[in-house]
Design a protein around this nucleic acid. Structure first.
Lengths: 337, 337
DNA sequence: CTGTTAGCGCGTTCAA
DNA sequence: TTGAACGCGCTAACAG
């Protein structure tokens, strides 16, 4: 592999000139520029990023932490981040944490070691005692989840508002016995959705029943959704609608209903959250709140770049637009029952 | 951020000693070792990977090229690669190519620039004229797709054998009018599957009908599967079974059947390929060929590491086990029709 | 507009 | 067992 010194010798100039040309720093006469380019061509020179990055003390890498990479919700966010990063000449280093704070912390060490210039935390619900220290010293942005008490820039949607809209929609349809399948995690999205669920019911004078509030596994697994739904649908009086805080859970609820001989939406309405694409592949298509996953990722990356260049003078919170999409899994309750 | 020199000064030793200790190179007396560790602790020193990697002329990064990151098939492979890489102290740099050879090539330039030590190409159907040059100079491994004519190590499954098993299964069920939905791409998996489809029919004395052979979009989109299936199901005589080369296409075929008022599997059998998890979320559960995606990724990474350490003396082809999983979407044809 | 030069932080000789 | 010294390839400050 040719080095810059060799190129310089070949072109009969100094390394500084070659460097200047490559970095559009200062000015180089068209004449010598041409000679240098010829030399580069001839030796098929490629700059050594190991050396360049070392010299400039930057890695041009951003760290992405996600619970996993197979959940389509995360995958779409990653996609948005990846494209935005590539557009800025950055590479995305993806670390999966499996929701393990220890691995999360371990990954953030990469920042200290100069393996990455900044980090985006996707769906991290960390205690934030020590996270803030990192965010103070390094550019860190959170995506989709965050701690409202902690001052770390983040991109998300208005989970409270989105849930409220879903609930208003269900109530307008005529539903009164509305259950919810939430999840056993500490995500802000989860608590905001549960809160909006309770508040909206209360505002309409509907007393929330504690047995209508179920919790699925922390990773929103299909199976846990199915089990919780079966329990809910066994309650007397049976809920006429189930609001699920993720599409996977909604799919589980629909399967549970079918296995109990209940039709969706005629016998029970099911509403999801996220709008991951594979739910549009089989009937009934799910009524759900669409999140702009790709955009969530893209904006997170842009926010991170802003943080890296402009320092801490960036917005603390960016909320993107959601959208309630009404499809087939929701209908008015059967009032004759 | 403290440097090694500062640690050395603090401990009253030379940088060489600190370095030796950190790299378990040579020997350091327990006495001084302790002093050095104390200094490291006190200054909370972290080695600068930028400098270390530069010095050792290695990036400890492997490049992953994938068409996208949202297709669950790729996502699971990425998951396997990521875990294997992390286990070896490597970071996985994921680049999405959108099936664009230009972007693929651009990404491989990273190898020349020393941004990565090796690369894994997932589902790359490149012409391979120039790919071989790269593979000759750098550690490169292909995952899932490869060119049989080109000598690049790869990990995949036996697509021919797997398809043959599916076809034998359908024929054993009594099917004779079997259609296939393939895809408009140049993947080896596609051509092997189509070939096995034809060969197996022929071996059973069934003349293949060209109009039973459909091609969906190159990325196996749900919609294209649906359209192709609708066309196939409109043919007289109507096929009693459709073999799809991906689960997404199978989902499309099932939807098409439903929209035409046909029941699966009573009126038409549908078989898929890949066994991506979300197909187990809604009925009918698909009969499909399961690919060990995670393992495919993991083995690819191990193969790459072998290539990086042992040079070119590694197996050219690694074939992992597939499995035909019979579920609900397949049944004997209705012989009374 | 161009060349000389000084490190960046580390690993690794070679001597002691 | 330890230390002194060199250089990886590049950028940037300075001098010309």
């Amino acid at each position: 592999m040719a080095t810059m010194a060799e190129v310089a010798r070949e072109a009969g100039v100094s390394v500084a000139t070659v460097s200047r040309l490559l970095n559009q720093q200062g000015t180089v006469s068209p004449n010598t520029a041409e000679r240098v380019y010829a030399a580069i061509q001839k030796l098929s020179y490629e700059p050594n990023l190991l050396a360049r990055n070392f010299r400039k003390s930057e890695s041009r890498v951003i760290l992405i932490l996600a619970p996993n990479v197979t959940n389509p919700y995360y995958a779409h966010i990653l996609s948005g981040i990846g494209d935005a990063a590539a557009g800025q000449g950055y590479a995305a280093l993806i670390f999966t944490t499996g929701d393990d704070p220890a691995r999360e912390r371990e990954a953030l060490e990469m920042l200290k070691k100069h393996r990455a210039d900044g980090a985006i935390l996707i769906a991290s619900d960390m205690g934030c005692n020590w996270l803030l220290e990192y965010a103070d010293r390094y550019p860190i942005v959170q995506c989709s989840e965050y701690d409202p008490e902690v001052d770390i820039p983040h991109v998300s949607i208005d989970n409270y508002q989105a849930t409220q809209e879903s609930m208003e929609y269900l109530i307008a349809l005529g539903h009164r016995r509305i259950a919810i399948i939430s999840a056993e995690n500490a995500y802000i999205s989860t608590s905001l959705r549960v809160k909006a669920y309770r508040d909206t019911l209360a505002r309409h004078g509907i007393a929330p029943r504690e047995d209508y509030i179920a919790q699925a596994s922390r990773d929103y697994s299909f199976k846990s959704g199915k089990w919780r739904a079966k329990e809910l649908l066994g309650i007397d009086p049976r809920p006429t609608a189930i609001f699920c805080i993720s599409d996977t859970l909604a799919l589980g609820a629909i399967t549970a209903a079918k296995e109990l001989g209940l039709r969706v939406p005629q016998d029970v309405t099911v509403v999801g959250f996220d709008d991951v694409e594979h739910t549009t592949m089989l009937h009934p298509y799910i009524t759900t709140v669409a999140q702009p996953c790709y955009e969530l990722g893209k904006q997170s990356a842009h926010l991170l770049f802003a943080r890296m260049t402009q320092g801490k003078e960036i917005p603390r919170q960016t909320l993107l637009k959601h959208e309630l999409i009404v499809r087939e899994s929701s209908a008015p309750p059967d009032l004759l029952e």
